[in-house]
Design a binder for these strands. Sequence first.
RNA 1: CGGGACGUGGCGCAGCCUGGUUAGCGCGCCUGACUGGGGGUCAGGAGGUCGCAGGUUCGAAUCCUGUCGUCCCGACCA
Length: 571
Amino acid sequence: MRWSQTFIPTMKENPADAEVPSHRLMLRAGMIRQLMAGAYTYLPLGWKSIRKAEAIIREEMERAGAAEMHMPALSPIELWERTGRVESFGNVLIRLSLKRGDRKVELALGPTHEEIVTDLVARHVSSHRQLPITLYQIQTKFRNEERPRFGVLRTSEFLMKDAYSFGTSLEQLNAAYQAMYDAYCRIFERCGLKYLPVEAESGPIGGDASHEFMAPADNGEDRIVYCESSGYAANLERAETGRKPAKIATPKGTSEMKKVSTPNATSIEQVSRLLDLSPERFIKTLIYLADGKPIAVLIRGDHEANEGKVRRAVGASSLELADEESIRKVTGAPIGFAGPVGIKCHVIADHDVALIRDAVTGANEGDAHLTGVNIGRDWKVETTHDLRNAVEGDPDPKSGEPMKFVHGIEIGHVFKLGTKYSDALGATFLDETGERKPIIMGCYGIGVNRIVAALAETCHDEKGLKWPVAIAPYEVVVVPLNMKDAAVREAAEAIYVELKETRSDVLLDDRDERPGVKFNDADLIGFPVRVVIGGKGLAEGVVEIKRRTDEQPEKVPLASVVARIRELLNA
RNA sequence: CGGGACGUGGCGCAGCCUGGUUAGCGCGCCUGACUGGGGGUCAGGAGGUCGCAGGUUCGAAUCCUGUCGUCCCGACCA
């Protein structure tokens, strides 16, 4: 491709609305343009990178035995009603109401495709002999994000590779899951992306096992907890801690329990300031409804409760923060003054709560807190649980070594779904004995845009982007320094033609621009290899070749330019 | 959905507080000449209903009200 024939609107200055590096640099490099919040046009350069990521994904999906198909973005709302996901997606689901003659058609734009693919399979698969099978597509998804942000990292419309496995048994599910897991590792590897598979909460999509693939990046929205010595890595939502249940014993030499007046002080922060005691001394008492029944969850004041852990600890299928009325019923007080002493419901406590000596808690009475509260004496539990989010330095569950935190961009996610959708949509098969059973499913997503964005986010310097060869918009840029110099122009042209003949992915910067402009644009866009043809070099019979990551160019005789470029690209 | 900020040629900004000719600057763009190894020089030029709608005023980019949009923090989420 010639620069003059494509469309690369680079920008010298930073756009005011772009803060994160991927957004800023992809805009400046002329790869993307924003249409509105959460919707971007991929310009020729950006789209080339996307297409390269897609190609790698396709190759690895085929290798893993998945078959590509293409489903509509439009779907009947009825399908989402049948699985209950109209409610669980809520406002995120983009709905359309269309008139067709005198009828009204209710549609949704697919935020994902479990319903559509399961419905398809339900209609056409009926025997164990047709299974297992894994189907995938690369398609635009639509989600009405409450807050699109970070440029292209979080948008309302995005490209996703989504695969779905269908099997007759747990063994088939596990095999499909493992095949996808391995394919994902190869995909991210080939894309030149640093990634980390982490244990993940499977979330509202359902299911019981899942891993997320994270690209470590400062601006990542997810927090990952990991341990270098054991290799354990998990999303913060999911991360276990290796803490042990505390010995339940009243500490020696404690103070008397006393009631103190704390008018209008309902938060730990407020009471902490009022009493001049640090939040670690507080017992945070959260009232939840577990399957509709109130429970009090005790967490140390400076920690965060983890609802997934609480739900599992009490064996509930649903868990939500209690409403004001339920809180009043068990505490006898308005919101903000709950405590374990004398509370009228089941109490469970995090390990660390049992270790607090002379704690501060709500008094289960308006505008009052208790100080000098001690376990065993003033309130009791049989044992303690891991109920809170991990914090930096918590012991790893495997090795016991302190764990570290890092931010990450979620680029892929694999789930074992089970039969949630096959049950809801009647996707069943007859086994060898003629018994009808639900198909066991898995689903596997990759954010295609996010592969490109995560690379932009993490591979750059002060001059611009630095693409890995696999995802770069072009592998090589050929830069004639003076288009008015016929010898330079012709030499560049010859190299360009020769590179094209060897099927290289090459861009010729045939603009009549000053050398400085061309150098800066090449650095900004971040082509992996740059070939510079100048009058001086040409007089010596050489051109300069430089990788984006090299400091200095090397002089290469005209005759061996193409061979040298091939060598650099394959390295 | 809570909190904060900002909307002025394509991009980045000034002007607004304290209303008053023709709304400025840098970059980019067009024409010509020179120039040609890291965003060059000179000369000429095009391009703006100051987000939108009301209001106050003799007069509004500037003051007031409303509204729309965008970004950031939080909640939510691939």
